[in-house]
Design a protein around this nucleic acid. Sequence first.
DNA 1: GGCGGGCGTTAGAACGGCGTTAAGGCGGTG
DNA 2: CACCGCCTTAACGCCGTTCTAACGCCCGCC
Lengths: 224, 224
Amino acid sequence: MTRVLVVDDEPQIVRALRINLRARGYEVDAAPDGRTALDLAARRHPDVIVLDLGLPDMEGAEVIKGLRGWTSVPIIVLSARHASEEKVETLDVGADDYVTKPFGMDELLARLRAAVRRAAPPEEDAVVVTDDFTVDLAAKKAVRDGADVRLTPTEWHVLEVLVRNAGRLVSQQQLLREVWGPSYENETGYLRVYLAQLRRKLEKDPSRPRHLITEPGMGYRFER
Amino acid sequence: MTRVLVVDDEPQIVRALRINLRARGYEVDAAPDGRTALDLAARRHPDVIVLDLGLPDMEGAEVIKGLRGWTSVPIIVLSARHASEEKVETLDVGADDYVTKPFGMDELLARLRAAVRRAAPPEEDAVVVTDDFTVDLAAKKAVRDGADVRLTPTEWHVLEVLVRNAGRLVSQQQLLREVWGPSYENETGYLRVYLAQLRRKLEKDPSRPRHLITEPGMGYRFER
DNA sequence: GGCGGGCGTTAGAACGGCGTTAAGGCGGTG
DNA sequence: CACCGCCTTAACGCCGTTCTAACGCCCGCC
């Protein structure tokens, strides 16, 4: 779950943000001043910070610098000041975005989504592991006994559909449609050939498949 | 040097941006429409894109989607529309920031600095070593048997994309998009020529490549 | 117990894709 | 203006993939 730290000394703004963020599945912490904000940021490691300028105890710029000393968490600044110099200074000390009050909640949430999105790690590899072999969907790679297994485009495509539906039955028609196209729905012979190929390359005992399983008369299923 | 791609069909805005950016040491490319923008983005790999909505040939959202299909370069949108829905939609399809016209040049430049700053990679050791050769991504150099290998710009670009995706399969379309641009996705002949060149210059036995590997029908893969 | 349909397995032929080379064209440089 | 790299393009031969057909097996059904 995404964690948001809201820093503002006006209770009604904190309240409005808390309600809106909670409703969208965010976890919300709140701090009424800069000191508490720095403390909570260190302890709770939020995924994004919404920071109101004009806190009672510290300059906004000081809060940002205090954060930037050790974290690159996205900071979205809220401010009543429209002055260009203030925006420039705030952004240049390390803020990621600057929203002027009064602000539209929809827009703030959209900017928050954008900030979280680009801070997210670039995409993890979707790796599926079985006792006998490993399938890396992102790298388009299958490994067995430590060695890469070479798969042809069609073999890979069939395997991919099955693995993405791991544990579920995939009907022959569905497989044929996704790999060969809608007009090949009756070519069940293709499936027999390619499933045999895949088993020969991946299963320990191809005659007794443990992962690429036939459901007679229905379709095929990948079990990890 | 930081490279900026300015996308706008109004010459005076392009001109103003170009002058201001040049004066601050940026390298500036400009595109008057979406099609040119996508092409230039692929060929020049800007560090940030300033995109005006309301281009003559494409919807702004379409341009953003076209970019987001293969790159995470920061996109700062310029727009005359202040409507909240437009901001939300634009940010949600992948824009990083949304600035309404008329805009202050100082503010835009500050937002641009912020976008570039947070996109900057955390100073990685960009040296990849294999048994047969070494690739230094930062220095843009390849070394084999202690001697520098001379690579043409295109050769280097192809190698760079493959090395940055080390171990992962890179499809022919992806490779062509990133090196030649989206309109070259069918020119698979280029790949055959350039992969042959790279193998001849880098592999010990070019007829049996150990690192620049072809996956027939799918793409290419760099293995260290 | 014979029969037929579905499935697994194998091999070969056709096709398209890939590696390789070299020549032409283009732009940049001295 | 001539030269030189680099990119593009085309031609050719080879290799891998896909398709197709044939055969054997198992199982349920008549």
